[in-house]
Simulated scan of single mutants.
Amino acid sequence: MSALICGSMAFDTIMVFQDQFKNHILPDQVHILNVSFLVPEMRRNFGGCAGNIAYNLKLLGGDGLPMGTVGVDFAPYAAWLDQHEIRRDALQEVADSYTAQAYITTDQDDNQITAFHPGAMNFAHQNRVADIAGVTIGMVSPDGRQGMIEHAEQFAAAGIPFIFDPGQGMPMFDGDDLNRFVSQASWLAFNDYEAKLMTERTGKSPQQMAREVKAVIVTRGGKGSTIYTEGKEIEIPLAPAEKLADPTGCGDAYRGGLLYGLQNGLDWEVTGRIASLMGAIKIEHTGTQNHAISRADFDARFKEVFGFAI
Rank of each mutant, 00 (worst) to 15 (best):
S186F: 02
I137T: 11
D109H: 12
H291D: 11
M148W: 01
G256Y: 11
G71Q: 13
R128V: 04
G256P: 09
D82L: 10
A3S: 15
A210G: 00
D176G: 03
I149V: 15
A158V: 02
R87H: 14
R180M: 02
P237R: 05
S186N: 09
V30A: 10
P171V: 01
F17K: 11
D131F: 10
F308Y: 15
G61M: 10
F155N: 01
M9W: 09
G47V: 05
G272C: 08
S186M: 03
K196A: 14
I160T: 03
I227N: 04
F74S: 07
F302Q: 08
G279A: 15
G231C: 06
P247C: 11
L197S: 08
A130Q: 15
F306I: 05
P240A: 03
Y103M: 14
A309G: 06
A90E: 05
R295P: 01
R180Q: 02
F74N: 07
D63Y: 07
F116I: 07
D131Y: 13
L238A: 13
D176N: 11
I236M: 08
W268S: 03
Q146R: 12
N179P: 00
D252V: 04
Q184H: 01
K243V: 14
D165W: 01
Q20Y: 15
L197R: 11
Y103W: 14
I132P: 10
Y77L: 10
G7T: 11
G7K: 05
R295D: 03
G138N: 04
F164M: 01
Y98I: 13
I137K: 04
G7F: 06
Q29R: 13
L277W: 06
W80A: 12
G138E: 05
G261D: 08
N264G: 04
G224E: 07
C49Y: 04
L258G: 01
G257T: 09
R301F: 06
A157H: 07
I25C: 06
A78D: 12
E230Y: 03
M172K: 13
F190L: 09
K232L: 12
P161S: 02
V94W: 08
G224T: 05
G265V: 08
V213G: 00
N122D: 13
S225P: 06
G261F: 05
F11A: 07
D177G: 03
D107S: 09
R201C: 02
K282A: 13
D165H: 01
Q126V: 13
A54Y: 06
S186K: 06
M172H: 14
Q146V: 09
T288S: 15
V16R: 15
R145F: 03
A300V: 09
N34R: 14
I14D: 05
E150K: 11
T229H: 14
F11T: 04
F181N: 01
A292M: 11
C49Q: 11
A245T: 14
D174Y: 02
W268G: 03
G7N: 04
R273P: 08
C49I: 09
Y55E: 08
N191C: 04
G51A: 13
T106H: 06
Y193T: 02
I236D: 09
